[in-house]
């Protein structure tokens, strides 16, 4: 009886040991970058204090943190417009890219006609085209959305075309044997098989659309994180500048996380 208990007990212990090991590995994976970041911030704080760097050149992390709290209402007032422009640009740019990708896959002619134009537009630096767009659409919301959309557009177009073409030849032969129509092949085979490609593009777009919105605000705006960055820079309010930059990257992280969660829920294979 004791012998049986022991043999039964053994794998359980092994299991527990393995789980503990896995937990430690996960903990190390999280702890390493966090500790590194804390270390860097501490070095920065100490460096700024030790060398007496003036605050308008490089504020200390504690100053930035204080500003984040004291200027929170102002930061938020500028955060929402940028979030709105980013999300709108993300939606517009990606929807356009997906629709055009579908047209490209559907017709070689359309692809031949428009792909070179898409490549050309993509080669223009966003910083160079932003003023043009602000001139065309004015200093309002539209220009920022267009810039954010433009920056999302190309990676999604290219990935989506590849995704729609990624169907295995055998799946297409199967569809043919089943006498499937073109639209059935599209909805039931091509579109689902493009989703992993689409999501890798959306993850890029999630962060670049924020860049687009901010660049748009630099050129012409009086609200938004981009406008606040310009304002804080010209007024030598470095702590506010840093806090704004911090919030901008927070916005990117937020967008990225949202897309990643959606991906994990949708692409389960």
């Amino acid at each position: 009886m004791t012998a049986v208990d022991e043999t039964l007990g053994m794998p359980m212990d092994d299991d527990a040991a393995e789980k503990a090991l896995a937990r430690r590995a996960r903990l190390t994976a999280v702890a390493t970058p966090v500790l590194t970041a804390i270390g860097l911030i501490a070095t920065w704080e100490i460096g700024v204090r030790a060398f007496g760097v003036p605050s308008y050149i490089a504020p200390s992390p504690s100053e930035v943190a204080t500003t984040l709290v004291t200027e929170f209402p102002q930061l938020m007032r500028n955060f929402w417009p940028t979030l709105f422009e980013s999300v709108l640009g993300f939606v517009v740019g990606n929807v356009a890219a997906v629709l055009i990708a579908v047209a490209f896959v559907h017709s070689r002619m359309v692809e031949r006609a428009f792909f070179p134009i898409a490549v050309f537009i993509n080669t223009i630096p966003i910083l160079a085209i932003a003023p043009i767009l602000v001139l065309i659409f004015g200093a309002g919301l539209t220009a920022k959305v267009v810039i954010a959309a433009l920056i999302c557009f190309f990676p999604t177009l290219v990935n989506m075309v590849r995704g729609l073409q990624s169907v295995s030849p055998q799946a297409l032969e199967l569809a043919r044997i089943l006498s499937a129509t073109k639209s059935e092949v599209f909805w039931k085979i091509r579109l689902p098989s493009s989703l992993p490609f689409l999501f890798s593009a959306l993850k890029i777009a999630a962060t670049t659309c924020v860049i687009g919105a901010i660049v748009g605000e630099w050129v012409g705006a009086d609200v938004g994180l981009g406008a606040l960055i310009i304002d804080a820079t010209f007024n030598f309010r470095s702590a506010l500048l840093y806090a704004t930059v911090f919030l901008s990257s927070g916005l990117s992280v937020l967008m990225f996380a949202a897309v990643s969660i959606a991906e994990r829920m949708i692409v389960r294979w």
Partner: peptide
């Protein structure tokens, strides 16, 4: 086919049901 040519996002059951959905339209 030699490689099963299943649709990876469909469960076994949904893959078996695929021929019932195709060609309908």
């Amino acid at each position: 086919f030699q490689d099963a040519a299943l649709l990876p996002w469909r469960t076994a059951l949904e893959n078996v049901e695929l021929p019932l959905e195709m060609g309908r339209s």
